[in-house]
Each structure stands twice: as C-alpha cells, then as structure tokens.
C-alpha cells in the first residue's frame, strides 16, 4: 500500500516519471473500484446499525407486512425470494446440465455450435424483454389455468426466471467441461469410450467444481433478478401459501420504491431488504471464489 503514495517518480528522466505515475494510476483504479464495492455495503450498513441496536432489525426481518397495524416486516418477501429462487434453480439446473451435455457430447457436431450460439444469444436478451413477452403470453394463460386471481404468481415467474438463468449456467458448465485436460479425454477415447460415457465417467467426476460454481452463479442471478418477479409474480406482500399465490420478492420490494424519506418505516424495510440481498450475494460469491481457487489449484 505504501508503494502507491510513498515512492517518488524516478529522478532525472521526465519520461520515466510520467510512466510510474501511470502505473500508480492502475493501482488507484483498482483501489477505487474496491472502495466503491465496500462503500455500497457501508452505505447499507450505516443505515442498518441503529436498527440492529434498537432491535428493530430482527423485528423487521421476521414480522409480517401490515402497514395498518404498523408492522413493516419483510418476512413475506424473504419467503417469496427463497421460494422463487430455489424453484427456478430446481427447474433450470437439470435443463442446463443436460443442455451442456448436449453441447459437449451428445449432439451432432454442427448442431453443437448452433446451440452454443443460441445460448450466447440468450445471454444478450434483456430481462425486461423476457418479462414483457411473458406478461402478455404467460399471464393470461396462467389466469385461465388457475381460474382465479390475476394470473401473476410464483408459478408464472418460475419458468421465465429459469429461462433467464439457464444461459449463465450452461456457458459455465460447457467451459468447465472443455477445460478437462485433453490427455484424460484421449485416454478415454483410446479405451473406446462413447461420447456419453466420456461425459458420465470422465468429465463430470472431474468438473464438479465447475458445476458447483455454475450453480452458485445461477442462484445469485435468481435471487438478484428484479424485473421478472416485479412484472410477473404479482407483488402482494403476504407469505405465499401456495405456488399459485401472488408474491413479492426482496428485489421487487426495493423496486417498488415505496418512499423517499430516510426516516419512514417503508424506507427502513427497503434498506433491510437491500442488506439481506447484499449479504447473501457476498456469501454466494465467497463460496464461488473458494471453489474456483480449489479447482485451479488442483489443476496445477
């Protein structure tokens, strides 16, 4: 750290002095980015600390949302986020895993490239476009099927959210499959393994850290997505009793912008939601980093 500010430019040569300044700027840029990451957390935390001190934090976390009774808890949103994210992951993970098998081994060679291009194209589809199309296609359909309510429910949001997180996982899986050392693959080939056998008995046992990491990224995206749940899940602030119920996730709760006043209870509940989301993302990404370190370490 002392290097950044302590060292003076090399004397004698103006050119060299300028260059070292540039090198310092690289370090400063990285530091600034790191500080900004921390600043977002500090922003949320500074606001939450008084709430934690007077016990309001946990009260907000575990009570219901009943503004008429002066209850501003985010427990219903917490439940909705957990439900929506885990269901989407449960639907999307097998589809993504088998699609990545398809791209790596099962499909005819030309089809593999085509599918990989389609998956890459999917990463570029804006979330709001997915949600817009689903709002006018899926919601009326769900309304007809369920026969009650607006058609906006957890069940409506799950398939769209699954579709949204699938490309992230597929690309991650396919990349981790392709990083298996070619010597191992060649050994399997020379023993006469079929493509499927290679995937099942050679690639998957070696690529599990990659699979775990893809799963973590998918989970992170599922928890963090705002537009799908905001536009398709219905946003009612009650604990969902069934999948056909309307629900409001933590992200949607923030996105609805209930207040602009720091001191209002609505704003406090939004901040607690933000802090919960930040902390859960940080935990997911830390596990992600640990697994990637393990997997690169093993390869060396």
């Amino acid at each position: 750290m002392a290097e950044i500010f302590g060292k003076t430019p090399v004397p004698g040569s103006g050119e060299m002095g300028k260059r070292t300044l540039l090198e310092h700027l690289f370090t400063i840029a990285a530091l600034v980015s790191a500080v900004l990451t921390g600043a977002v957390f500090v922003f949320l935390a500074v606001f939450a600390i008084p709430l934690i001190k007077n016990g309001l934090f946990f009260q907000l976390l575990f009570s219901n949302w009943l503004p008429q009774q002066h209850l501003y808890g985010i427990y219903p949103m917490l439940a909705a986020s957990t439900m929506l994210a885990s269901l989407s992951l449960a639907l999307s993970f097998p589809v993504s895993l088998f699609t990545s098998f398809f791209i790596t081994a099962v499909a005819p060679r030309q089809l593999r490239m085509v599918l990989l291009y389609i998956v890459r194209f999917m990463t570029g589809i804006p979330t709001v476009v997915y949600s817009f199309a689903a709002l006018f296609l899926l919601v009326p359909l769900m309304r007809a099927i369920l026969g009650r309510g607006s058609g906006m429910s957890i069940l409506t949001a799950v398939p769209v959210l699954s579709l949204l997180i699938a490309p992230t996982m597929i690309i991650f899986f396919v990349n981790s499959f392709q990083r298996i050392p070619s010597s191992t693959i060649l050994a399997a080939d020379s023993l006469g393994a079929t493509p499927v056998q290679k995937v099942l008995y050679v690639i998957v046992p070696q690529a599990w850290p990659g699979i775990l990491n893809g799963l973590l990224l998918g989970l992170g995206r599922a928890i963090g997505d705002t537009m799908v749940s905001l536009m398709l899940a219905g946003n009612s602030p009650t604990v969902p009793q069934s999948l056909a119920d309307s629900a409001r996730t933590l992200t949607a709760h923030i996105g609805l912008v209930l207040a602009f006043d720091f001191d209002s209870m609505e704003f406090k509940s939004v901040f607690v939601s933000g802090l919960v989301l930040y902390v859960s993302t940080a935990i997911i990404m830390s596990i992600f980093r640990i697994t990637s370190t393990i997997s690169t370490g093993r390869r060396k």
């Binding site: 977002v40 949320l44 928890i223 705002t226 989301l277 930040y278 940080a282 980093r289």
Partner: peptide, 21 residues
C-alpha cells in the same frame, strides 16, 4: 485474491442494490 473476491461480489450484487445505493 483479495481484489478478485471484491470484484466478484460487485459483479454478483443484484443491480437493484446498485440502484438503491
């Protein structure tokens, strides 16, 4: 390692949190 973790977290934070900030 330290910066990687921070940047991973920054990349993973839901965009709505950045909006909230």
């Amino acid at each position: 390692a330290f910066f990687s973790l921070l940047f991973d977290i920054l990349a993973g934070i839901p965009s709505i949190i950045i909006g909230l900030a």
